[in-house]
Design a protein around this nucleic acid. Sequence first.
DNA 1: ATGGTGCCTGAAACCGGTTTCTGTTAACCG
DNA 2: CGGTTAACAGAAACCGGTTTCAGGCACCAT
Lengths: 344, 344
Amino acid sequence: MGNSRVTVREIARLAGVSVATVSRVSNGTGQVSEEMRRRVLEAIEQHGYRPDHLGRALAARRHGALGLVFPGLSGPYFTELIQGFESEAVPARASVHILCTHLREDSDDQVLEMARRVDGVAVIGGTISDPALLRLAEMVPVVVLAGRGPETVPSVSVDNEPAMTRLTRHLLVDHGLRRLSFVGNPDGSPDISDRWAGFRAAHRELDLTPPAEPLRVAMQQPDGVLAAEQLFRDPATAPQAVVCANDEIALGALVGALGRGLRVPEDVVITGFDDAPMAALVSPPLTTVRQPVRDLAAEAARLILAAVDAPGAPAPDSIVLPTDFVVRRSCGCPAEAPTGGTGK
Amino acid sequence: MGNSRVTVREIARLAGVSVATVSRVSNGTGQVSEEMRRRVLEAIEQHGYRPDHLGRALAARRHGALGLVFPGLSGPYFTELIQGFESEAVPARASVHILCTHLREDSDDQVLEMARRVDGVAVIGGTISDPALLRLAEMVPVVVLAGRGPETVPSVSVDNEPAMTRLTRHLLVDHGLRRLSFVGNPDGSPDISDRWAGFRAAHRELDLTPPAEPLRVAMQQPDGVLAAEQLFRDPATAPQAVVCANDEIALGALVGALGRGLRVPEDVVITGFDDAPMAALVSPPLTTVRQPVRDLAAEAARLILAAVDAPGAPAPDSIVLPTDFVVRRSCGCPAEAPTGGTGK
DNA sequence: ATGGTGCCTGAAACCGGTTTCTGTTAACCG
DNA sequence: CGGTTAACAGAAACCGGTTTCAGGCACCAT
């Protein structure tokens, strides 16, 4: 029993019926008499028959799988994405394929290759080129997750730019800070690019000149530590506030700043983006922007699943989810102040 | 061009040859005359033919995919695992399916279902029941990653117990500490169970009584913060050293301790396990045990791929990789002392 | 001229399912 | 009682590949 080598024809022979009947019983489709059903179910039960996924997939011309493509895996942000995506895929009986391109030379080809094994793909913004994205979209439904693609490819993202503008404005206006540094690489992903744009927009609103360049580092805690080291090396050029592209960097920067004996927020203000679980737990707690990461990925999965089920339907509109500005102590506010959304 | 709807028969018709010849050309198998090959390649090129993965998989009775099963995704440890696994799978042209069971009721069934879509599976220790593991092993090659399964299922892990014994002995003997707390849930995974065992073994070696119970928390930074809160609430019962089951917890505990105004290592010693990138960057840097997480997963992937290629071969032996004891300042040592392996 | 040998080629079977289409049977109706 | 219809079963085609097997042909040695 439990032998996965047993096929429809085998069951059909044992139950003394045709393969069509076995298929009908095992799928609950069509009309089957009580007597036949009983005989078939008995044979299925007795030999532990389970229809082969490949045979079924070939006949249905459907893989029963969704792809998720990353540049690289790092930090709680990505694990949240995966789990949000999975939470929608699994109930839909679709398995999840993942691919980390590591921004290798052949990333585009790898993604195209993956597309031939799944029914739809979500690509993290900034992972592959736009032309590749378009070719991908010809093959299977695609959505860009956390970022934007070409006009015709739907995407799911948050209102990065206004959120970061609001945060930056808070530092400039409410705290009267002037020398701000932005830490993160705008070329690394559309998300960061938007946040950098929001950061500069807040400066221009107030007729201030934003820094010409961000401090380009990767997105993890260690990168934040290194950034702090660089920013605070020379007290003369040290910023009053470090606006980090995400919480991971901010947490690293905080550790780095405290490690150098600086007080936060008295000597330097530090802010993040994401509202990762640690953000509320460090001392001082991190002022940041909460974004619904899991929902973001779940929404992407839903979009793809819908497109798979309704082929030929027009590509859905892009979705922008709202964020919340979360004021805590690392910006210099006395305590957890009231928060408000930035969504329209 | 690029149309994925074109099939072997279509190409065969266009090139005026049989499907067998097309198949031979596209796979480079068998003997084909130069003239035929040219005609077929031309047709393939012209119509952008790429063999369908499902058809091919069905004929080969091989999915070209490997599964990776987690209890849940969290922290750098798991992202490292995924990337290590992928680094072996991708060159072998196998895609990677992931499944987070979240320790749900139907975890076992979900994993069994996954097994029908892949050629082999790696299961993180402690994710599913032993009976399920055995049934899984009847279906496809399986290895337990970071943990142990039933005798007959090969596993890949590190020498957790001796490594933790060595670290604990260092605290007890070299630093003369006595009141140690272990933070982590031994029931959560075999890895942690072994580390807890190693912790106690070090006490018994010295005729000391280890704590009866660990402080059971989950494995992420926030859990470490909460643990610190609990441990240091009452100064009378506060431990002299906090031995954490992994670096994430230790980092959280460190943040929590510093946040309460405690000095590390003067007031309390904190140690980790993993040697995550942050371990070396915090102040004080974390004394910990380095384990080759990526290699661990890569090794698991290699084992599975070998088993898939050589069906019927006896299950390989389990593998235990060595670790390194990394002494830094959080244990009270003055600076980065010489390190040494614990592997046999 | 004959038989043997290798190289190519294509028809057909196969992988394991689903689905269409045809045919049988029984029930129902006037 | 004859005719229509609905319910059901099975043969065969299909999904898109690979592989076996038999045959055709050129070349070589006898």
